[in-house]
């Protein structure tokens, strides 16, 4: 077993266990912290796939900005174990069973697909994920979507302020 495989399995196990802990934790703050662990594991996968730009952006945008926003909102609402609303046990069981059935069907579909047999995702080689190549593509081919996304951010900012302000 090579080092890449060991890191892959470690990061996969970390991602799945942390994602499960997001669901299981009663305290919303713990859920946020476990979700940050998931994002770190996914960033590790990006580095393993040599998508360095996305790994850094994932850390800065998701684990940095978005999760801090979540923590701020939870702090603002003063949520804790006692104020946590609970569904009854049958609803939770039904949700888990339906999600498990979906996973089972999709996995069996993937195992039957012959198109992806013997296809591999190249690890730690290939330079398309480097910031130079992505920057060239972003500012040549995707210039218009890039500018539109700035308008989207402006409208999101205005919308958040309008919704969030007191009457």
């Amino acid at each position: 077993m090579s080092a890449i495989q060991i890191i892959f399995w470690f990061l996969s196990a970390l991602a799945i266990v942390s994602a499960l802990m997001v669901l299981i934790s009663k305290n919303p703050v713990h859920s946020v912290l476990w979700l940050i662990m998931v994002f770190f594991a996914i960033s590790g996968h990006y580095i393993l796939l040599n998508a360095q730009f996305l790994a850094i952006v994932n850390l800065i945008v998701y684990a940095g900005a978005i999760m801090v926003l979540f923590l701020f909102v939870i702090m603002l609402m003063n949520l804790n174990n006692e104020s946590e609303p609970q569904k009854n046990v049958w609803m939770r069981l039904a949700g888990a069973v339906s999600g498990g059935c979906l996973l089972m069907i999709l996995v069996s579909l993937v195992r039957q697909a012959i198109e992806i047999n013997n296809k591999v995702a190249e690890m730690k080689v290939g330079d398309i994920g480097l910031i130079g190549n992505l920057g060239k593509a972003l500012f040549k081919d995707y210039l218009v979507p890039f500018e539109i996304s700035s308008v989207l951010f402006l409208s999101a900012m205005v919308g958040a302020i309008v919704i969030g302000k007191k009457n």
Binding site: I16, A19, V22, P28, Q86, K87, R92, G99, G100
Partner: peptide
């Protein structure tokens, strides 16, 4: 699927 289960089972 973990995300889907989370949307289904949590009320927060």
């Amino acid at each position: 699927c973990i995300g889907i289960v989370g949307v289904l089972v949590r009320r927060n």
